[in-house]
Write a protein that binds this DNA or RNA. Structure first.
Lengths: 205, 205
DNA sequence: TGTACATCAGTGAACGCGCGTTCACTGATGTAC
DNA sequence: TGTACATCAGTGAACGCGCGTTCACTGATGTAC
């Protein structure tokens, strides 16, 4: 390959950030380290991202884009089963994303590390959360037990966000990722059984 | 005051860490910065904490101690109202602690920053979580909708942890801390109404 | 009550490190004519 | 088809910075006799 003109350095640097977070943690991310991993000089990243905040902002933006895609896919796939199922499905997709794309997740919600005023970031995060908004708006209020949908949405958001956070902060290290997901499934199932109790004496299973 | 022999440097340094996190963020914590704030030479902290990890570990330990005290107080205060009320009360205390003692909270669950093997830390965190364990063990399974208490406890833990995390990460910036607490109260109320539905025809609220 | 000595707590100089950032540069590529 | 030139992408030396850590030191305190 040619020495000059990497060809896809921007993406290579974003990939490098993901790898550094995965292997050494978020605190170990540096412009020089990303450049090292991508095999370019230490000043190359400035050309694409300006400064360190720019690099992390771009990384978070990419994360929100993938996040939005994942949520939208779950939303669409659950459509035949109704709004309540969609609500449960995006919650599960939320946790799955945090587990599968932990590096993105660790940066996306760190407002102090990224440039909140960046229009690309704003667009990507708005698009991702539009799926949540649509789910809440489309669902029967009974899904939330008749309370304020906004409150219920935030509580549900907190729930999945918290389970994901606890899991990868090592607070519930004794559980594998499948455990976390199965706990989520159990909670949803209990919730479902309450909203639409099985007719006449059938076990809730 | 005497130049030498601060008298209470250990505590002064821990206070300094709390102030730095509150004003400049966790990333700005350094041994030198804490020493500067406490008005001592930059090498003084090493005398009390060994290294940076030691300082943060001691800070987290102090956090878990206060956390445990807060949870235990909520647990005791709600005792007259029964296990379900205690369950709700420690959840609220959890969020309140995160809001009031944000600096501690930000460090306590960061396993990569602290020495997990430290016996003092271990004792303090175990004591704090013993309150949660006792609450779950003491509660009627119906409190959890009949599901596995452990799963329900983790889901509830995730819920309050997530609400607190989202709040102070700025994800739900538009809400004040009272908003967050009132949303929690609304969720608990809805839950309560389900477990013990009001007799005959009264609206669920 | 006074003296000698051990211990404790904090000092300040020094070190090496990786970092972010700047800047003049150079090699590679694309385009106008 | 070839030449001139502009632009783009990455280089490498240099800078200053705050940091963690070490270490010989010194001032203050406590204790034995």
């Amino acid at each position: 390959m040619s020495t000059y003109h990497h060809g896809d350095l921007r993406n290579a640097l974003l990939d490098a950030v993901g790898e550094i977070i995965a292997t050494e943690g978020l605190g170990a991310v540096s412009l020089r380290g990303a450049a090292r991993r991508a095999g370019v000089s230490h000043s190359a990243p400035a050309h694409h991202f300006g400064d360190k905040t720019g690099l992390l902002t771009a990384f978070a933006t990419e994360g929100f884009e993938r996040f939005g895609t994942a949520l939208a896919a779950a939303y669409a796939a659950a459509a035949p089963f109704g709004p309540a199922a969609q609500f449960a499905a995006i919650g599960r997709a939320y946790i799955e994303f945090a587990i599968e794309h932990r590096s993105y997740f660790e940066v996306m919600f760190r407002s102090e590390l990224i440039d909140q005023g960046d229009p690309e970031l704003h667009r990507a995060s708005r698009d991702a959360f539009a799926v949540l908004t649509a789910t809440v708006a489309g669902a029967d209020p009974a899904t939330f037990g008749g309370g304020d949908p906004l409150h219920a949405a935030i509580a549900a958001w907190g729930n999945v966000h918290g389970m994901a956070t606890l899991w990868f902060n090592g607070a519930i290290q004794q559980f594998t990722d499948e455990h976390v997901l199965s706990i989520y499934d159990a909670v949803v199932e209990r919730e479902r059984a309450r909203v639409s109790p099985p007719a006449d004496g059938a076990a809730t299973g």
